[in-house]
Amino acid sequence: MSAVNSVLVIGGGFSGMSAAISMRRNGFKVDLVEIDPEWCELGAGITINGATLRALETLGLYEEVVKKGCVTDGVSMHLAHGPLLMELPTPSPVGSSVGGSGGIFRPTLARIMSETTIASGVNVRLGCTYKEITLTNESAKVEFTDGTSQEYDLVVGADGVNSGLRKKFFPQEPEPEYIGQGVWRAIMPRPPEIKRVNMWIGNHLKLGVNPVSDTHMYMFITEDRPIKERMDRATWPERFAKLMEEFPNPTVQSLIPHAYEETANIDYRPLANVLVKNSWNRGRLVMIGDTVAATTPHLASGAGIGIESGIVLAEELIKTNELDTALDNFFKRRWERCRLVVENSAQLSRIEIHGGDKEEHSNIMKESLIALSQPI
């Protein structure tokens, strides 16, 4: 029997929703607070590798993702001027028959998970978050921003890369570290020849496309930017189009006019990462997802490792009536996979920034995807 009955999840992103769904299905009483009153996941598309699809299958969401997204197989890596560098196979992950890779509109995946969170019986409170948390040996007392308070057996912190919980309870941990790159994302019409993930690797630039539906695909460009800076949003379409011009592939070139269309929904974000290397809990507070392992998108696994962590946390909590044991085992199961994603993604970024060996880049991707296909 678990030592936990009542749980508060702080943050309604992918990792928080995964934890809430998994714990509710295992009989826990779960509240989830999300500060955004609209519970709105912004962004363009998201690449989903096989390991993430397996995690979504565990949550019972795979068929819905297949229906509303696009499941494909393999990754084609090209040099910037066109020649094929390597074909990366993406077989089904161990223990599952799901596809090896895929893509979906990010808001669509968020909506699938939020609807499931509510349907599972989680008590969701929007426009609300914690104000103060007092931890004791017996409980976690939480005061909320709406003036209410409640005691829980466990608090799960999933409040993102800029986590206030991490700052408060792990003050020794550094702030997210900017890595010298930014990522551009956009939604583009999907030409018939784009049937899988394709990437073109240039000097200090990488462009990729991934189908997210029968009619559309998600395009991303990573760009070196030594200094973290704000750019006028009005200039984004022109900047994005100029970056596309660096890749002579006919398909990429034909799509340049679409960068100026409102439907492209262009987004730019500077890239940073976080990796908390010691225990992820302080007594009855445990942190998951981007709060402790925020990665750059080079392995398309940031959302995936967060979703996995929500599943594993629930699994460990029902195995023992010793909370410390459950949280220690959770950390042991998650550390190596999360470390691999954060550190290997950072290494891919360094290769891109310094114009390193393109084959080394492809091999790191291949080896990482093989490792992630192993059981969690």
Rank of each mutant, 00 (worst) to 15 (best):
I221W: 00
N203A: 06
E175K: 14
T108Q: 13
N123H: 12
F169K: 06
S368H: 08
T325L: 14
G127E: 05
L207C: 04
A300H: 11
E343Y: 04
Q253K: 13
R239A: 07
K242R: 14
I194F: 02
K195D: 03
V9A: 09
P93D: 03
E238Q: 13
P211S: 02
L53F: 10
V33R: 05
V124R: 04
F247Q: 07
A3G: 15
R230C: 00
L109A: 09
P83M: 00
T72Y: 06
T295C: 11
R25T: 00
T108W: 01
R339Y: 15
F331K: 10
G208E: 03
L205E: 03
V312H: 10
L275A: 03
K228A: 06
M231V: 11
K67H: 11
S213E: 07
T263N: 08
I10E: 01
N210M: 12
G60P: 02
E132M: 05
L61S: 02
P270G: 07
G60Y: 08
M199S: 11
L126Y: 06
Q253L: 08
K168H: 12
D328V: 04
G95P: 03
D146L: 06
E173T: 08
F14W: 05
S149I: 01
V7L: 13
N344K: 14
A55I: 03
D324L: 10
F105W: 06
P171Y: 08
L109T: 12
V155S: 01
D36G: 01
W335F: 15
A19P: 08
A19W: 07
G302R: 11
A55E: 10
E322P: 00
C40M: 13
T325S: 10
G304W: 12
L42S: 09
N49P: 05
L109C: 12
V286M: 00
K141R: 15
G69Y: 09
G102F: 05
K195V: 11
L313P: 12
I35D: 00
I307R: 04
E173W: 04
P91Q: 03
G103E: 04
V342P: 05
A259G: 08
R269D: 05
D159V: 01
G164R: 14
L109P: 15
F331A: 05
N162H: 15
A186T: 05
M86R: 15
N273Q: 11
H204P: 00
E223D: 11
R239G: 01
E63G: 03
E336Q: 14
I266L: 02
P37R: 15
S22M: 06
G283S: 02
M231W: 11
F14Q: 05
P250G: 00
N137E: 15
A80L: 02
T222R: 08
A119K: 14
T148A: 08
D232V: 08
G283C: 01
D324T: 14
V276T: 11
S368M: 12
A264I: 00
E138T: 13
W335V: 04
